[in-house]
Design a protein around this nucleic acid. Structure first.
Lengths: 232, 232
DNA sequence: CGCGGCGTTGATCTCTGTCAATACTTGTGG
DNA sequence: CCACAAGTATTGACAGAGATCAACGCCGCG
């Protein structure tokens, strides 16, 4: 784990709030491992022994239904932690996790963390903040699936990926389109078509490169919920 | 706060795990208040000073979009806590809360709680369990919205409301149908029609009374995702 | 009695899923 | 270097679920 990695660790709500040496004491002995694409990290229902921090690459969290359907409930990237809450929930993962690009992950043992929390109550506040962030994210995700159309969800997704808030830019799609589609709650075909519908807004796609004429346009489009002004 | 209230408090993941006297010391000094229907508890964006436990009645959490739309992200009933996560996240509520029936709520001050956590580390662990439980619930909600049809979501909702797991029962709809519809991610008209489609399964509705011939049937219906037997 | 809120029903439309066919990319082996 | 296969993306035709718009019925209330 080099300096760059350490910066990433300190940027998370979980490890950022605690003091340098406490963070060090928790993750100092933990391994950083590289994972191949499609590596299964854990399955839903398994005992939750540890949680993860993404140093590089992408990881998807999903649930499998009895008949083979798969629903993505989150995709995590560099600087994000996941499954840290599961450690406290009956000790079982409520979702499955799979690496979707080759990735480097920091793996943190749950038992260590639990022990440290007993010694250092302030840690719990960091944990709670982190869990809250995820809660907020999920709440937003529900909101978006409920009220935004497919093209709007894509626009929102692209905005979230864009390095700038206005003007032109080029965005690299971070992983397969089928995966993005699932994450946004639609089928790959719908994803494809929805992208076409964004063309009039200055979006063009070539392979995994998306060219955006004006991000602002996307923002407005994603927020436009009908425009019926009921005074209420 | 009487004996019954105390039982409710002890049944929550948050307060159930901690010892009697600790729970007592935290909430003993906190007020139980009665609220009229439509009382606004807090608005999204406000500083989060406290969280709530429902002793009686129903409370909805929702987000207002810039153009006046309203999305329900959760409805909480007796025995459930809400907004406790917000206290640790930047100190602001991510959603608004409104009482939808006359209700009795326990209001817990965040500052007091934070102090107690520092004194009593185990307290933190049980709180984390609570946050995790909500997280899991949200994940499940996403899954349901994505893959269940409208009638299935209603079936699932009714099952969750039913006091029994099998046989016949009568369920009282806890709040307005338009509100339920929103919570389940559909329009009131669709809700109405979907209820009709459940008639063949032994469901009949009169006002806010739902008569269920066999809950088991509903369970199976809600779980049936297609039933196409692809050997896979 | 008339009014307003809520719920239901009907007709129609739009969006998205499904199924199928067709590129396009990438990798493999001859 | 090319042929072929497998995985991935796009496009088309179609069907179904749910949204929308509108009308109507029901009930409580002034």
């Amino acid at each position: 784990m080099d300096v760059r990695d350490w910066q990433i660790v300190r940027s998370t709500p979980l490890f950022g709030a605690m003091s340098q040496d406490v963070a060090q004491s928790i993750i100092g002995t933990q391994p950083v491992r590289s994972y191949e694409k499609q590596t299964q990290l854990f399955q839903q229902g398994e005992p939750a022994t540890c949680f993860f921090l993404v140093l590089d690459g992408w990881v998807k969290l999903y649930r499998s239904t009895p008949d083979g359907h798969e629903v993505i409930v989150g995709v995590f990237k560099r600087g994000e932690t996941f499954a840290e809450a599961a450690i406290f929930l009956g000790g079982r993962y409520p979702v499955s996790a799979e690496v979707v690009t080759s990735a480097r992950l920091l793996r943190v043992d749950g038992e260590i963390l639990r022990r440290r929390i007993r010694e250092q109550p302030d840690l719990a506040l960091s944990m709670l903040a982190s869990a809250s962030a995820h809660l907020k994210l999920l709440v937003e995700q529900i909101e978006k699936i409920k009220i935004l159309s497919a093209p709007q969800r894509i626009a929102d997704f692209l905005v979230g990926l864009s390095p700038v808030r206005q003007g032109a830019t080029i965005i690299e799609l971070p992983y397969e389109k089928a995966l993005i589609a699932n994450r946004l709650g639609m089928k790959p075909e719908s994803f494809s078509r929805a992208l076409v519908k964004l063309r009039p807004l200055g979006i063009s796609v070539d392979r995994d490169r998306v060219t955006v004429a004006d991000v602002q346009l996307l923002v407005r489009f994603a927020e436009a919920v009908d425009r019926e002004e009921e005074g209420f």
